[in-house]
Design a protein around this nucleic acid. Structure first.
Lengths: 214, 214
DNA sequence: GTTTATTAATCAATCGATTGATTAACTTTG
DNA sequence: CAAAGTTAATCAATCGATTGATTAATAAAC
């Protein structure tokens, strides 16, 4: 039970840190606040993760690794590229919608210069891998004649950028979409399917050739 | 000449602050560093702008107001909606490409909770106004039968999100596009026209109806 | 009884902000 | 024109508060 509690407590701190980092940013979240929100002594933070940066690193790493594997599985399946893109987008939106704060954290991390942290490079490399998987599927689709000859890199940026925009600036997005994206239920049941529908429509018109025959 | 120097110095601090805030984030940029980078005593910061937050506010306000007016001019012109969208996108990309750090700042500002700052609400309201102008043009285009019946709000998010993604995560975008977006010349002469071409192509295929007749 | 977990107290460093003094530039006065 | 008065600009020094991190002492677990 001690082992269990230890793990639970560490896990609890990770969850709290993900939220607080996401809300206030890395520099905006003090170790005292992090510990207080997690209901533990602030020395425990260093005891568990060595440093504040170590805590951020742990928060980031536990989510990034798993996601890419799922991406890879889809990308290497044997199906039409249009299907692959569809599934990848679906997975990505799902991931983003369930972990509200995580994508804020990593996007902020790669947009800021924080000297002396290894986290940025880790995030950068991981995101790049994900991007390249989508890139690969698009290239394959074009090569097979399934897709129009679009600007692959920009198309990728369009997908990730759109999702990012809606998730990372949730207050603005709430005003635009006229729905409360802070509410998890609204996010899941209204915004998510709507975003998916848009991405599918947008990608379909942009990628697929005009089926003027018939 | 004294008057001139005073203004120049304030302006200089604003320029430096825009860069430093953009690079390190609000909390990451200390007033000492800001003053040092601007080559002045740190008391001048408070003398000019009252507080650190006042400096950020000044940095943000001097750019936001002017941009919206230009947006409005385009939106209210008498031309096909497709032309309007084109011009707005062109203006927006131009703006973003010339002020490298500014859009990092405002996007970060609306994605973070900073208690006791009026800046967030100001940014939020301004961005919303810009978004609504695009929204209005899209709605008009649909109503006139010029555009397909797309999800307007999502389409807007797609435009702003794509540009945002490329600008705010420039290091990642540099890896993806295989060009050095830190280099201003590359940004202007290679990335900007390419982004514009993509947005036009993407919007054209998504918004315009299939001209299969004729 | 030894290892592991947890605490309160404390560390040096840095934070944003303010102070009082000094300089420079312009105005007023004689 | 020159002396006296006034304002704005700039500085070094320092304020109290907070930062991330560490300690030494204690409690719990095995």
């Amino acid at each position: 039970m001690a082992e269990k509690e230890k793990i639970d407590k560490k896990e609890h701190l990770l969850n709290v840190a993900e939220r607080v980092f996401g809300e206030m940013g890395y520099d905006g979240a003090s170790t005292r606040l992090l510990a207080q929100e997690a209901g533990m002594n602030m020395a425990m933070l260093n005891y568990y993760f060595g440093s504040k940066d170590g805590l951020l690193k742990a928060v980031v790493e536990r989510r990034m690794s798993s996601t890419r594997k799922e991406f890879e599985v889809i990308a290497h399946q044997d199906m039409p590229c249009w299907e692959k893109i569809n599934q990848i987008v679906q997975l990505y939106v799902s991931r983003v919608a369930t972990s509200k704060y995580f994508h804020k954290i990593i996007f902020r991390e790669i947009s800021v210069i924080r000297t002396g942290s290894e986290v940025t490079d880790f995030v950068l490399e991981n995101l790049y891998q994900n991007v390249m998987l989508v890139h690969q599927v698009l290239a394959e689709g074009i090569q097979k004649g399934e897709f129009r000859e679009v600007d692959i890199e920009m198309t990728v940026a369009g997908i990730f950028g759109t999702v990012n925009y809606l998730i990372n600036s949730r207050r603005l997005a709430s005003k635009i979409l006229k729905m409360d994206l802070m509410d998890d239920q609204v996010l899941q049941e209204e915004m998510k399917p709507r975003l998916l529908a848009y991405l599918q429509d947008s990608l379909k018109t942009h990628l697929l050739k005009n089926e003027t025959e018939k």
